[in-house]
């Protein structure tokens, strides 16, 4: 009987140790007021705003410093206008090909293929289908239309305006044009 009690006590202690070890809960903090920021952190919840989050969109009509508004509308007429008249602010000397290639590989190559032939990894694995090649004659993309599509998205493609800065977008546009040229060779 005594043995039984001893064994139960040891078992209980062991169980209590293992039950404390829960990987889905964060560990204790020593002095939390040094760990937790007093100021707002990114993505923090906050009751300062009506929608309960700290991250807010800029006020309508305000323009951040160093930011150029994009004047073309997101619909077909904007697309056609951009295709007709929009040109890149970068000249050939400002085209930084290694960087543009890196950006292209991260953001575009996964669907459009690293050669721009519409055979990215997601297409090869049949997750996303119907990605056109850049040399598609029916679409006949140019600098303006590429930038417009990158900015607003088109059909199944989403907007990439929040992934890349304005300058980076133009670098990628230049790289897409280079790929298009290579495909048409």
């Amino acid at each position: 009987m005594k043995h039984l009690i001893k064994i139960t006590i040891i078992a209980l202690i062991a169980v209590s140790f293992t039950s404390c070890n829960n990987s889905a809960r964060p560990n204790y903090q020593y002095m939390p007021n040094m760990y937790e920021s007093v100021g707002y952190e990114a993505y923090q919840e906050s009751n300062a705003f009506a929608n309960g989050v700290e991250a807010q969109l800029p006020v309508d009509g305000s323009i951040p410093r160093g930011y150029t508004p994009f004047e073309y509308s997101s619909d077909v007429s904007g697309y056609n206008l951009a295709k007709a008249e929009l040109v890149s602010p970068l000249d050939s000397t400002q085209f930084d090909e290694p960087r543009a290639k890196e950006l292209y590989t991260i953001y575009c190559g996964i669907c459009h293929g690293n050669k721009g032939n519409g055979q990215g990894n997601l297409v090869k694995r049949e997750k996303i289908l119907g990605v056109p090649s850049y040399d598609d004659a029916g679409r006949a993309i140019n600098v303006g239309s590429i930038y417009h599509v990158m900015y607003y998205g088109k059909n199944s493609m989403g907007s990439y305006a929040n992934f890349l800065s304005e300058e980076e977008r133009w670098q990628v546009v230049a790289y897409v044009m280079k790929l298009k040229g290579d495909l048409e060779k």
Partner: peptide
């Protein structure tokens, strides 16, 4: 892993910011 999407595709601000 399987689809081979670059980390920076989704976590794009790792390139340009603290976060």
């Amino acid at each position: 892993g399987d689809n081979g999407i670059d980390c920076k595709y989704c976590h794009s601000s790792a390139r340009v910011s603290k976060h």
